[in-house]
């Protein structure tokens, strides 16, 4: 079960089963967000297609996370529009959920499940093949080099390991669009390099990526375009 350590990209193809992602375009047009007069995001436009990566840069509080939430369909823009293949971008819509995966903030985990259990649960709910679920979940953890933690519970992880676990859950579910909010947080240099390779592999397989990132090395390795978000 813990045989060969998987190489970066082995288990992180867009659909989880090795097939490339279908073409997709995610777009915001002059999208801004304010709540009761407080501007969280100044109007911004952005289009990301399959196999492309846009890195969001900006000072703390400039609105990067808000933009990612808009792109995830979790937040409606106050001004402008957000679309997925010219259709609605709303996480209440099953089609949006099926295509867009996001790591924005810390996803809460089940405290009574181990890491491997979480991946098997996620895989099964997305209709993954039952007979190979264990192997694919093991491979995902191996890709992030946390397979030795597979039988730990979430509260038994360090903060860096928690971040890798969160990334594993988001990368493991099928998606055509991947939104990551500062995925390099709390990772050491080697793990940042590993993550960069994984994301490059996802991009090559056709996933559209939007990543908020403060790491210049990761940014130059991943970005087809860098969007500087300026505060309101």
């Amino acid at each position: 079960m813990f045989g060969r350590r998987a190489q970066a990209g082995d288990a992180v193809t867009a659909t989880g089963d090795g097939t490339p992602a279908a073409p997709v375009t995610i777009k915001v047009s002059k999208a801004g967000k304010d709540i009761e007069g407080a501007v969280l995001l100044a109007p911004v436009s952005l289009t990301v297609r399959s196999g492309r990566c846009v890195v969001l840069r900006g000072a703390n509080g400039s609105g990067k996370t808000t933009l990612l939430k808009v792109l995830a369909g979790a937040l409606e823009p106050s001004t402008g529009t957000a679309t997925l293949d010219d259709g609605p971008l709303d996480e209440r819509d099953a089609a949006t959920r099926a295509r867009v995966a996001a790591l924005v903030g810390s996803p809460t985990a089940y405290r009574d499940l181990t890491l491997i259990d979480h991946l098997v649960l996620i895989d099964s709910t997305w209709g993954g093949a039952i007979d190979t679920a264990d192997e694919r979940a093991d491979a995902m953890l191996a890709t992030l080099e946390i397979d030795h933690l597979s039988e730990r519970f979430p509260h038994e992880l360090s903060s860096g390991q928690q971040q890798l676990f969160h990334l594993a859950m988001v990368l493991f579910r099928p998606s055509q669009v991947l939104l990551l909010d500062e995925p390099e947080q709390r990772l050491d240099t080697h793990k940042r390099e590993l993550l960069t390779e994984i994301l490059r592999a996802r991009k090559a397989s056709g996933t559209a990526l939007v990543v908020a990132c403060h790491d210049p090395v990761m940014t130059s390795a991943l970005a087809d375009k860098v969007l500087d978000i300026t505060g309101a």
């Binding site: 649960l121 895989d123 099964s124 709910t125």
Partner: peptide, 11 residues
């Protein structure tokens, strides 16, 4: 380990 099932069964 949690065994894989259908979407409802696994929950």
């Amino acid at each position: 380990r949690l065994r894989a099932h259908g979407p409802v069964g696994v929950v």
